[in-house]
Amino acid sequence: MGILLAIQGAVSQGVLWGIMALGVYMTYRVLDIADLTVDGSFALGGSICATMITMGMNPWLSLVVAIAAGAAAGAVTGFLHTKCDIPAILAGILTQIGLYSVNLRIMGRSNTPLLKLDTMFKQLAALTGLPAAWVSLITGVVFCAGLITLLYCFFGTEIGSAIRATGSNEHMVRSLGANTNFTKVLGLMLGNGLIALSGALVTQSQGYADIKMGTGAIVIGLASIIIGEVLFSGKKRMAFGTKLFAVILGSVIYRIIVAMVLQMGLNTDDLKLLTAILVAVALAIPVAIEKQRQLQSYKASLGKGDDGHAGN
């Protein structure tokens, strides 16, 4: 029973964190920018949400404000990158480190518990009579489904196409009359808006916001994206919607892996190291396989007589 409960918890965490992974996907895959704002904007969403709820404001409203704040953080990174010509990685780090102080200022302390306060999950649980764990899971799934649909539609529009094209060939996009500074900033705002939304949802689900809640979020996002891609690696062509679904699925699988290793007795302190190794291995394996395949085919050509054209 313990395992099943742990897995249910993992799945519901997976979908909520999956929204963060979707945000990372916007920048890392769609725009082809390594945006490190993530850790800061995730905690930003959490801080704002927790602070607004302790102030007695509507928890749903806090989601909207979190999205807006995340988008603003993305805009700052975008401004530093496009207008000030700071490399994207550095621009993201600058925003991220700045947000650490901003988040402390917002909360006024490093940890804000929501124990006795009304979160949206508690409201929904009271409304539906379902247990809290299920409410969190169902809400997460509904949010993910809605967001995937919205994103799918958005990236089918003229502006959405221009953002995708910017990630593929920004030179072409400019020559076809779209402002790539604008598309980049828009993509960064969208990504960080999603990330902050995820931070706010996670905060309400776990019942507290912490200044360090975003630490390593970028790696978890990457892990989710890569796990998702590995799962669907058999498919040559994937529709955009399927790719987004794969990200969420990757996030869920990541959480299940984490839950399982914790059940097996891994110290939580080692979790980040495990995540880092997981991502590094997942990134390295396809390269190693390709090299091995190349070597094998060369060796096979040597074996097949002396004409050296065995490969043909």
């Binding site: 003229e158 196409s161 995708r164 094209a165 076809l176 009359g177």
Partner: peptide
């Protein structure tokens, strides 16, 4: 001159909108 990661028709649709305002109409 072309975006490798996008479909042939998507590349053409970007080109058809050269110099025009891009909005939330279908791409």
């Amino acid at each position: 001159g072309t975006a490798a990661g996008m479909e042939i028709q998507e590349n053409l649709s970007m080109a058809l909108r050269r110099g025009k305002r891009r909005g939330l109409r279908w791409g």
